[in-house]
Design a protein around this nucleic acid. Structure first.
Length: 258
DNA sequence: ATGCCCTTGCGTCAAGGA
């Protein structure tokens, strides 16, 4: 079972690229972020014609997350990250698909720092830890996939000093990410490829793609049951190199059947 | 210290992204 996460940077603006990717990559489950689309503009018909059932939590202009399931409908279990009724940003959606619980998340960027956006990022990640703890009660494989907007270590960035002042690479969000791992979640890609240089995002600016000036911020975190079934994981870099591409590449895991 | 590039929206520039 292949589960992928892809920050599409505009689900309508890049619909053709998304459909082409679904056809070629054929994930059983696809977690999408940065839809940049309100709910009523989500391209549900085109995605259905591509063979995918879908649930989505959109928002005009920014944010927005969706879960796609090949040949079936995801069974929604949660919409919006719990823990703050005042949080109206569409950054979390969760569903059961063929016995696997999948959380699709888009963590806040947090820039500029310091300031309210950085505070919101830290509070959001704290809430994610609380929710992830609660999920552990479920006796099934769980995958928390998405754009965490956290560069975990110096190995995950082409030039650490360039990102030293950026919210993505601050000690606080990195500590929260480590806290998640310590509580029993496995960073699938790093687990299988401990020494490889792997990026999932390349800035549109400064020819970052052609220089391979990337960072790794899209992660798939696995609970114990999912980690026990982990067969392979990687990043589909070639997607980033296409014309009119998103600034992120899809990342994926392959889980063995139970 | 800032811009760089790219998206969306009732837009003709602003705001957000990372």
């Amino acid at each position: 079972m292949k589960i992928a996460t892809f920050n599409v940077n505009g689900v309508n603006g890049r619909l053709d690229l998304l459909l082409q990717w679904l056809e070629e990559s054929k994930p059983e489950v696809a977690c999408l972020q940065e839809l940049k689309s309100p709910d009523d503009k989500f391209p549900a018909r085109a995605i259905e014609q591509a063979g995918y059932g879908a649930i989505w939590h959109g928002q005009a202009r920014w944010n927005g997350v969706a879960i796609l399931a090949r040949g079936c409908d995801p069974v929604e279990t949660c919409r919006g990250l719990p823990g703050d009724p005042g949080d109206s940003q569409s950054r979390y959606i969760e569903a059961a698909v063929n016995g696997v619980l999948v959380g699709c998340l888009y963590a806040p960027n947090g820039n500029p720092r310091p300031g309210p956006k950085f505070d919101y990022k830290l509070a959001w990640l704290e809430r994610l830890i609380v929710h992830a703890d609660a999920l552990k009660a479920a006796d099934c494989p769980i995958v928390l996939a998405g754009d965490y907007n956290v560069i975990p270590t110096e190995s995950d960035v082409y030039k650490p000093e360039r990102w030293a002042d950026d919210a993505l690479f601050q000690p606080e969000p990195r500590a929260l990410y480590r806290k998640l791992l310590k509580r029993g979640w496995t960073d699938a890609i790093r687990h299988l490829h401990p020494d490889e240089t792997i990026y999932t995002f390349w800035d549109y600016w400064r020819n970052a793609w052609s220089r391979n000036a990337g960072i790794r911020i899209d992660h798939l975190l696995l609970n114990r049951q999912a980690a026990d079934r982990l067969a392979a994981a990687g990043v589909e870099r070639e997607v980033r190199g296409q014309p009119h591409a998103s600034d992120h590449a899809p990342a994926w895991v392959q889980l063995r059947a139970a």
